[in-house]
């Protein structure tokens, strides 16, 4: 995976598989560290599984014996001098947090977070997403709940005009806080 935003896309798949109907994604850049946090209200894991999940031999999938998603994300963060942690509670949900040192030569670019978020909104119109982007100059907060409030029940989130609006408004607000140069 050559973009952090692709790891995020992959971690979101775990949340979807876990039956989450709310997924919160936060990207924070402090000028040095880029912190990525994905929180869901899915089925969660027991303490033992959560502790072992960064080891590539833990998986619940049946087509292949090993899980790769979390171990790959962890390796990518650690290659920059950063770290990855998984906190989870059975029946409550899961938090995956990765810290990247963004100036490190081995740090992959963040890549298009907007594509990651908007594609997931379109493919899972029954799940709510909240997405925040924080830089030293300010923050952007986006939430499908607010969008749904305006659209009502009749206009779905995957309507092409709505998709274009979501992409543009997220990108514009991120550019205003200087996040465009990180994406």
């Amino acid at each position: 995976m050559n973009e952090i935003s692709l790891h995020v896309l992959d971690i979101i798949q775990n949340s979807i598989k876990a039956g989450a109907d709310l997924i919160v994604i936060v990207i924070e850049f402090d000028g040095e560290r880029l912190t990525v946090t994905i929180t869901d209200n899915g089925c969660g894991m027991d303490a033992e599984t959560a502790a072992r999940v960064t080891d590539p031999f833990v998986t619940s999938r049946t087509t292949r014996r090993v899980g790769l998603g979390i171990p790959l994300f962890k390796a990518s963060a650690e290659a920059t001098g950063g770290s990855l942690t998984v906190r989870s509670e059975k029946g409550v949900g899961t938090v995956v947090q990765a810290i990247f040192y963004y100036g490190h030569i081995d740090c992959p670019p963040l890549g298009s977070m907007t594509q990651t978020i908007v594609s997931q909104i379109v493919c899972h119109t029954d799940v709510d997403f909240a997405y925040s982007f924080v830089t030293p100059r300010g923050r952007m907060d986006f939430s499908t709940r607010e969008v749904r409030q305006v659209l009502g029940d009749d206009v779905p989130l995957d309507t092409p005009e709505v998709v274009v609006w979501m992409r543009e408004s997220i990108d514009n607000e991120i550019n205003e806080i200087g996040g465009g140069s990180i994406q």
């Binding site: 607010e146 305006v150 009749d154 206009v155 779905p156 005009e161 709505v162 609006w165």
Partner: peptide, 20 residues
């Protein structure tokens, strides 16, 4: 989220075709 007004416009415009 600032441009929610534009979204309201989109809702009005697309409602008819959605029903189809």
């Amino acid at each position: 989220m600032k441009s929610l007004k534009d979204l309201e416009e989109i809702r009005k415009k697309t409602l008819d075709s959605i029903n189809m």
